[in-house]
């Protein structure tokens, strides 16, 4: 593997900011553009950048393929779980009004959790697909 020194240094400096921006997009989506889907993609992009420059083995040491597979399902289960939680608390499926003492607060809480679920699943699926593609040519 060629040792790309300058891209490696730049990417190392850049990745924390990309991850921070991903978190901002995730949790600021209620107020500005963005949300779980975009945040998941940005998070995955930061990770793919790392894997491209430092190799798949290093990347898989940070996030093993098994852990990624777990998160692929975990985000969707979190989303569906919010729906079941609102049934248990006496509302309809995905009716966030009942998740807190007043409806608007409940809506905020529900949106926060389902957006988190979307972000987790999207990020995990994209990283997983990248692992699958780039791991394939090696053996």
């Amino acid at each position: 593997m060629i040792h790309h020194l300058i891209p490696r240094v730049v990417v190392k400096l850049l990745i924390p900011f990309v991850l921070l921006f991903g978190l901002y997009v995730q949790f600021h989506g209620d107020f500005g553009p963005g949300g779980g889907f975009q945040a998941g993609v940005i998070f995955a992009a930061a990770f793919i950048l790392y894997a491209m420059l430092f190799g798949l083995d290093h990347a898989q040491r940070v996030f093993p393929a098994g852990v990624i597979s777990f998160f692929v399902a975990a985000g969707l289960i979190l989303y569906a779980g919010v729906g079941f939680a609102s049934i248990v608390l006496g509302g309809n499926y995905l009716d966030y009004d009942v998740l807190a003492h007043d409806p608007v607060h409940g809506q905020h809480r529900g949106i926060l959790w389902i957006e988190l679920g979307v972000g987790i699943t999207v990020a995990a699926v994209i990283v997983k697909i990248f692992y699958m593609f780039s791991g394939r040519g090696r053996d």
């Binding site: 209620d30 949300g35 989303y79 569906a80 809506q107 905020h108 949106i111």
Partner: peptide, 20 residues
């Protein structure tokens, strides 16, 4: 919904089923 971004309130709350 009380969320300033209407796109988010449509996607996540009014159309929560579709997003699921």
């Amino acid at each position: 919904v009380g969320v300033p971004n209407i796109v988010t309130s449509v996607l996540a709350s009014y159309r929560g089923y579709d997003t699921l």
